[in-house]
Computed example of a mutant assay.
Amino acid sequence: MIKKTLGAMAALSLFAAPTAAFAQDDEEVVARPSVFSPINYDATEDVEDVWVLDLSNGERVKVRLMPEWAPNHVERIKTLTRLGFYDGIIFHRVIDGFMAQGGDPTGTGQGGSELPDLKAEFNPMPHVRGSLAMARATEEDSANSQFFIVFYPRFSLDKRYTNFGRVIENMAGVDSINRGEPPQEPTRILQASLASDNKAPPVAPSAPATADTPVTADMLSAPIQQ
Rank of each mutant, 00 (worst) to 15 (best):
P182N: 13
A172Q: 12
K119A: 09
W69A: 15
T106P: 04
I77D: 01
S37Q: 12
V74W: 01
G84K: 05
A10F: 12
P71G: 02
L6K: 00
G112N: 05
E114I: 11
D42P: 03
Q101R: 13
L83Q: 15
D96Y: 14
K159P: 01
I177F: 00
A195W: 01
P38M: 04
V35E: 11
T162G: 02
L220D: 05
G102K: 10
R136I: 12
A8L: 13
A120C: 08
K62V: 00
L83S: 13
I90Y: 00
A20I: 10
A192E: 00
A43L: 05
A43Q: 11
E140A: 15
V63N: 00
I89W: 08
A204Q: 12
V52P: 02
P33T: 11
Y86N: 01
L55F: 04
D26S: 02
G165P: 07
D87A: 13
L190S: 11
G111I: 02
A43M: 08
L53H: 05
Y41M: 14
F164T: 09
T106C: 04
D218E: 15
G130M: 03
M219A: 14
A70M: 03
S176H: 04
L55P: 08
R60P: 08
P201W: 01
A21Y: 07
I89V: 14
N72G: 03
N170E: 06
D46R: 03
F15K: 10
F36E: 07
F148P: 04
D212I: 08
K159W: 11
A70P: 03
E140K: 15
G130V: 05
P201L: 07
G180K: 11
G111W: 02
D197W: 00
T216A: 14
F148K: 08
A200I: 05
M219L: 15
M171L: 08
E75H: 07
T138H: 13
D212H: 10
P186Y: 02
N144T: 13
A120K: 09
T79Y: 04
Q191G: 08
A217S: 14
M219G: 13
P33Q: 06
V215P: 14
R76Q: 03
N123C: 10
R160K: 15
D87L: 07
S156G: 15
T216D: 08
E139M: 14
N178Q: 10
T216N: 05
I168P: 00
F122P: 05
L80S: 00
F85K: 12
T44F: 10
R154E: 13
G103H: 08
I224K: 08
D87P: 06
Q146W: 00
E181I: 11
S193Y: 05
G58T: 07
G97Y: 07
W51D: 06
A204M: 13
A21I: 14
P71A: 01
N178G: 03
S13G: 01
V35D: 07
D96K: 15
F85V: 12
P116K: 07
P124V: 05
S34C: 07
E139G: 15
V29S: 12
M125R: 13
F22A: 04
S56L: 09
P208Y: 06
K159H: 14
T213H: 15
K62P: 03
G111R: 06
M99H: 05
E121G: 09
D117N: 15
E181T: 11
A133S: 15
A137P: 03
T108I: 11
I39S: 10
V215I: 10
P208C: 10
R129A: 15
T5Q: 01
V52L: 07
Y152V: 11
F151S: 02
D175H: 12
R154C: 06
